[in-house]
Design a protein around this nucleic acid. Structure first.
Length: 114
DNA sequence: GGTCTGACCAGGG
DNA sequence: ACCCTGGCCAGAC
């Protein structure tokens, strides 16, 4: 079964759209759940340009619980958006993934934001 | 085809 | 906790 890049991309975006307010997912986690384990870097590429979209792009962070977008110029914006929905960061710029990382399951569904 | 790059990651020292 | 390494793989020359 081959998963085309187009399918991968749309699965990633579907997942991002479902992340509840105040929760986060990581690049690697999205790659895994979208059917391309180990392809975290491609998720980063897919996220390019989503800052102007309606998607909650700010809820995607790296596996250390930190923001990865400073190098692309969106870091401050992302942090502000997350803090505005209740996510707090420690001195080293990390949030508590054990508490905030969201894994899709039937009980914890939220209305899609699309 | 080859080579470089990257909103990444896990593991090891 | 930090830094480094190697792995990852699609895009863009």
């Amino acid at each position: 079964m081959t998963t085309s890049m187009g399918e991968f991309r749309s699965r990633v975006l579907d997942l991002v759209a479902r992340i509840p307010v105040g929760r986060v997912m990581t690049y690697g986690q999205l790659a895994l759940l979208a059917g391309s384990a180990g392809n975290a870097r491609q998720v980063g590429f897919i996220m390019q340009g989503l800052a102007e979209s309606e998607l909650p792009w700010q809820r995607v962070i790296n596996a250390q619980g930190a923001i990865s977008t400073y190098k692309v110029g969106f870091g401050e914006t992302q942090r502000a958006l997350l803090e505005a929905e209740g996510v707090s960061f420690d001195e080293s710029g990390r949030c508590d993934l054990t508490r905030l990382q969201w894994w899709p399951d039937r009980e914890d569904e939220q209305p899609a934001l699309l």
